[in-house]
């Protein structure tokens, strides 16, 4: 039991926060912000497996989020599918797509990979924008309500618990993965790619695997988002959204699962806190991005963890 506590300290703290937060929540708007923070966190936890652990950049992950969202919106309305079936189809489709594009592009390195992922994101977003007869184009479209085993999620409160639970599951799965032979292979190919290959790791295979897994995380969160938001519009899958996801991961802490959650929550809350000075929001966001990378390149959570460890040590 104590081993479990040790291993999952972060998970337990997160669970406690999720349980206690409603005490401070006063209205549906607050719930709405927290739900979006949680959905972003699921994407970023997955994305951080790719960027932080495996060291491969993606500037196109919003496209997978968006494809998941549109899959749910289109399949549950136009085709009348059950919400879980639509979500599963979205995840499977995104998984296949990610696999097909990952094999050729993950051979690329650094800026070339950034360019390729960015291009894929933009292509997908243009397609969804243009095929208006399917997607509603720039006006967007709505999904049917989300229901599981006959229970339909309507209230913000029920959504809060749903997303909170899903986030905990995402964090648990990711932590497990990192601390497994697969996770070691990912960290190894980040640390010294040639060294990893020579001791027997098929680095291409693992890069593709983690790209697909992180895309599926994004698709999952996108599906939930589609059911929760009034309308799904192409703005959720543009280049800027992709950048926001990366920023959340980097700000919270690369190669840190809890960092992903903290980064996603803070960066989702920030625009709401800054709402009164809306015009200055990009300036502040940009300054935070530059400042974080210059003054704490490891990100918030690892930097704080290191400070605490130093204090603990005699």
């Amino acid at each position: 039991m104590s081993a479990f506590l040790q291993r999952h300290r972060g998970l337990l703290i997160l669970a406690a926060c999720i349980v206690l937060l409603p005490l401070a929540v006063q209205n549906d708007y607050h719930y709405d912000v927290l739900i979006n923070a949680g959905l972003n966190a699921i994407v970023v936890v997955g994305l951080n497996l790719l960027i932080g652990y495996a060291g491969q950049i993606s500037l196109g992950h919003a496209a997978f989020f968006g494809l998941g969202a549109y899959a749910s919106a289109i399949l549950t309305t136009t085709y009348g599918w059950h919400s879980l079936a639509a979500m599963g189809a979205g995840m499977a489709g995104v998984g296949v797509l990610a696999y097909v594009v990952a094999r050729p592009i993950l051979r690329l390195k650094g800026h070339y990979l950034a360019m390729a992922t960015l291009g894929i994101g933009i292509i997908i977003s243009i397609v969804l924008n243009t095929e208006a007869h399917i997607t509603g184009g720039p006006d967007g479209m709505s999904a049917a309500p989300f229901s599981v085993f006959g229970y339909t999620f309507q209230s913000e409160k029920s959504w809060y618990w749903l997303v909170g639970g899903c986030l905990l599951a995402a964090v648990w799965l990711s932590s497990n993965l990192i601390d497994s032979p697969i996770g070691r292979a990912l960290r190894a190919l980040h640390g010294a790619e040639v060294g990893a290959r020579v001791v027997g790791i098929d680095t291409t295979h693992y890069k593709v695997l983690i790209f697909v897994i992180s895309a599926i995380f994004a698709s999952f969160a996108g599906s939930l988002f589609a059911h929760h938001t009034p309308t799904v519009t192409p703005s959720i899958l543009g280049f800027i959204k992709s950048v926001e996801f990366v920023v959340m991961a980097v700000f919270g802490g690369m190669a840190s699962v809890m960092g992903s959650v903290v980064g996603a929550v803070i960066m989702t809350l920030l625009p709401n806190l800054l709402a009164s000075i809306e015009d200055y929001e990009p300036i502040i966001l940009g300054a935070i991005m530059m400042g974080t990378m210059i003054f704490m390149p490891k990100g918030l959570v690892p930097t704080i963890a290191k400070m605490l460890r130093r204090k603990e040590a005699p």
Binding site: R184, A185, A188, G191, A192, G195, V198, V199, G200
Partner: peptide
């Protein structure tokens, strides 16, 4: 070609990758 982002024993465990449950 050390994995500086990992612990010493994890470096060795990467070497065992071929033979473990994965």
């Amino acid at each position: 070609q050390i994995f500086h982002n990992m612990s010493a024993v994890e470096n060795v465990m990467v070497g065992a990758h071929l033979h473990v449950q994965k």
